[in-house]
Write a protein that binds this DNA or RNA. Sequence first.
DNA 1: CTGTATCCCCAGAGATACTG
DNA 2: CAGTATCTCTGGGGATACAG
Lengths: 128, 128
Amino acid sequence: MEKDSNRICLCPLEGIITTISKKWAILVISILGHHERLRFNDIMTTLEGISPKSLTDLLKELQRTCLVRREAFSEIPPRVEYSLTDDGKQLCKAIIPLIQWAEKRDNLHSKNCNATCQSTCCPSKRDI
Amino acid sequence: MEKDSNRICLCPLEGIITTISKKWAILVISILGHHERLRFNDIMTTLEGISPKSLTDLLKELQRTCLVRREAFSEIPPRVEYSLTDDGKQLCKAIIPLIQWAEKRDNLHSKNCNATCQSTCCPSKRDI
DNA sequence: CTGTATCCCCAGAGATACTG
DNA sequence: CAGTATCTCTGGGGATACAG
């Protein structure tokens, strides 16, 4: 029982958890983290399966929590670009240990991840 | 765009996210991480507000995913102790950067976290 | 192209009462 | 003490069609 961690407050985490635990959220963060800026449809097609409503809902939530920035250009046809804020980029880094832990654990528990990933479950692996 | 992270697969994370994003999940993991072993009622009272059903559901999920171990003793009255598995302990460590990021961010965005924590929102701060 | 506007559905979470 | 058994209800997520 280390003294330092005793002082850690879980409140802020609870807050952000409600955001990043939303479906697709981490995927969007990660994908944006690897592309600098992306348009609505690019994200849609990369995610393969998300509905426009779900994606706009999510993007709004991510804007609200200052993780994602939205830039609209007054053109015809309209162009909108999404990118991570500095906060979003830091989050991207903060979850790396979690991803690595999950990956290591997954490899220990089952060996079929690669097979699955090549097909449909994980578009991010191909596109990131 | 770093080459290494390009190879990271998000699949396993997606899997674990569905578990740890459940309400109370991270709180339970953290609390167990700081107490070695706890009984059902201890967790209940520490969490302040969770119903027995929600807690059993969650504990079952955490056992299913090999994060928490359950030990039952054949006594009257019955005694059951919960503790983290090695996997659970590693998870506990893996989310530290996330917690720190969230905490730092929370301090930047609003200064009233401490006030809130002292009251009701964050029993973990008192009890961990 | 970038979204809204609707409608629907059910899994997750809570409240309450009860049991071995 | 450590849970089950029920019931309820909300809202997140999806499908689809449409709009600026």
